[in-house]
Amino acid sequence: MAMSRDEIFGEVQEVLVDALGVDDDEVTAEATLMGDLGAESIDFLDIVFRLEKAFEMKIPREELFPAESLMNNPDFVNNGKLTETGLTELKNKMSYIEIGEFEKDPDINKLGDLFTVNTIVSYIDSKLNAA
């Protein structure tokens, strides 16, 4: 199923409008899911289920939203920051995006900022192109 990034964005936008009860103009590419769109933990599963239907693919939650498993592993988190191992793990898991600035100050409170609308679009894009 070949789709352009714009087409993917359109579908993702619709999914987020339905899952989070937000307006479509709030769902910009840079909007963060938790900070800007108010997503809570159960919403991430709702989003995964809806994306699976919209794109007709299997999406392991850990693959798209690996934050929870990282944060609960003491090897990956120390003193409220991701360790070197944690950062490597994060980069491996989220190889479909650049983690950029986060690497300089890997404060776990800022981890949520990595999960933007664009992150989902990039993930779907990587899955569709790999197929």
Partner: peptide, 10 residues
């Protein structure tokens, strides 16, 4: 049931 996974169902 629309979807069911190890953690949740919709």
């Amino acid at each position: 049931i629309e979807s069911i996974a190890p953690e949740a169902a919709s």
